[in-house]
């Protein structure tokens, strides 16, 4: 049996960090981990509401690598283990993450950037007024376009195509929504775009990459948008439009307005249920959802290649901008 007692006095490495608009007070015994997380962090904001504490003990003698994740949660506590050597405990009420990890995990930037930070934001986000939303987010001219849709609708493929065609990439799968001074803000985590094997039809350059098994067991290409598609990555934007993506057989594209009641129903169903112990977090989240429901919303039905869909979206954004200035 082993036991780990986290004593703050011995976590001598301290750093203030920021992920997707949420400030994080890190304490750890590992300088390596501070370096890794600092490289993932954005500039710390002055927002005291969106703040959580992370205490990580790194076992320098352990070299065990990350294994398949196992998540369980009850009331305000959630655990995530990645094998016996890597355990994370999330306390949503107290907004803390406590962890005991191996030295190999501490150095694994990809794990923190692509898995652990999004997991932290997904679990603790609601307590900080941050709503994890299952949608892609692109930005053009300072205005954000949220692209929602069921799995398989083509959010990631379209995000990749848009990032090659004049849109800045924020996220392709999970976007974190918050409110700052009454404005909605969409945050990404610079996670790679995840493209299913058949995306190679539209992006032949993917042939030089290997398929990987992602956290949900799917086989996919995990691609850095900036390196592979020479796209620009942005961390945040102010969302202006919400689009529900729907693939159809016939070639072409059309935009149909979506009533706010339908948007609300979609958003409420797509966020995770929270236990009754987290009623305050639930209320904060409802406020952000209410702001999202106020966005102009369309259903975008399209058939054909993702590259052709980008043309429709360019026209759509141009028309919307003209209407604003008219």
């Amino acid at each position: 049996m082993s036991y780990v007692l986290i004593d703050k006095m011995f976590l001598s490495q301290r750093k203030s960090l920021c992920f997707a608009g949420a400030n994080c007070d890190l304490s750890t015994n590992s300088f390596e981990l501070v370096k890794v997380l600092d490289s993932v962090s954005t500039i710390v904001t002055g927002d005291r509401q969106s703040r959580f504490t992370m205490r990580v003990v790194v076992d320098e003698s352990s070299r065990e690598v990350i294994e398949q994740p196992h998540f369980r949660g009850m009331h305000h506590l959630v655990t995530a283990s990645f094998g016996q050597a890597n355990i994370f405990v999330f306390d949503i009420l107290r907004r803390t993450v406590s962890a005991h990890i191996s030295s190999a995990t501490a150095k694994d930037e990809k794990f923190w950037r692509e898995k652990l930070i999004p997991i932290c934001l997904g679990i603790l986000g609601p307590a900080m007024g941050l709503v994890p939303m299952h949608c892609a987010c692109l930005e053009r001219g300072g205005k954000g376009l949220l692209v929602a849709g069921n799995s398989g609708a083509g959010k990631s493929t379209l995000s990749a195509a848009l990032s090659q065609n004049g849109f800045n990439y924020i996220s392709d799968d999970w976007t974190y929504m918050s409110q700052s001074y009454g404005k909605l803000v969409a945050h990404g985590t610079s996670a790679p775009v995840k493209l299913l094997p058949d995306a190679v039809r539209h992006f032949p350059t993917l042939r030089k990459f290997d398929l990987k098994t992602s956290m949900n067991g799917e086989l996919a290409y995990e691609i850095d948008v900036a390196e592979t598609f020479l796209g620009q990555i942005k961390k945040t934007c102010e969302p202006r439009w919400l689009i529900f993506l729907e693939r159809v057989q016939r070639t072409g594209g059309e935009f149909l307005p979506v009533p706010s009641s339908e948007t609300q129903a979609y958003l409420e169903c797509s966020v995770e249920r929270l236990p009754t112990q987290l009623s305050e977090a639930s209320a904060k989240r409802d406020q952000t959802i209410k702001a999202l429901v106020g966005l102009p919303c369309w259903r975008f039905r399209y058939g054909g290649t993702p590259q052709s869909a980008t043309q429709y979206l360019h026209e759509f954004v141009a028309v919307q901008n003209r209407e604003v200035y008219a």
Partner: peptide, 29 residues
């Protein structure tokens, strides 16, 4: 998963977590 060979105990402040293998997890606040 049911690999209950190792027991680990973890405490941070008021929270204590016992994990036996991967599948058995007890949390004490």
């Amino acid at each position: 998963p049911d690999n209950t060979d190792t027991i680990s105990l973890f405490q941070d402040g008021t929270i204590r977590v016992l994990q036996a293998g991967t599948g058995t997890i007890l949390l004490y606040d």
